[in-house]
């Protein structure tokens, strides 16, 4: 098994772990973490499987960089919404 394929296998493991976390965990923060793990898994498969013959391939590497930025943006928005929610709970929870 080539190194690239080993990365891809690890990616599959991370992907299903993240997928399971998204479905099974209730806490919102855990879900956001799970989404990041799932995404990292997909990125690893993209890079690893594309380079399973051992030749470095810049195309999936660039795609993963794009994907990382996209998932950073999505994570930031999710965290901001979660904080907004916590904010509202605190702001109105104690008032009559």
């Amino acid at each position: 098994m080539s190194t690239g394929l080993l990365y891809a296998m690890t990616g599959v493991l991370l992907f299903v772990l993240g997928m399971g976390g998204l479905f099974l965990r209730r806490a919102l923060m855990t879900k956001v973490l799970a989404f990041n793990i799932q995404g990292s898994g997909a990125f690893l498969v993209l890079v690893g499987l594309g380079q399973r013959s051992g030749i470095p391939d810049p195309v999936p590497q660039a795609m993963v960089l794009t994907g990382i930025v996209v998932s950073v943006a999505a994570t930031a928005l999710a965290l901001a919404l979660i904080r907004r929610l916590a904010d509202n709970d605190m702001g109105t929870g104690d008032e009559p």
């Binding site: 993240g18 989404f35 799932q38 995404g39 997909a42 990125f43 498969v45 499987l49 594309g50």
Partner: peptide, 14 residues
């Protein structure tokens, strides 16, 4: 989107 991306990764790999 994660599931979609995984599909794209498999297709690119293949």
């Amino acid at each position: 989107s994660g599931a979609y991306l995984m599909g794209v990764a498999l297709i690119y790999g293949t």
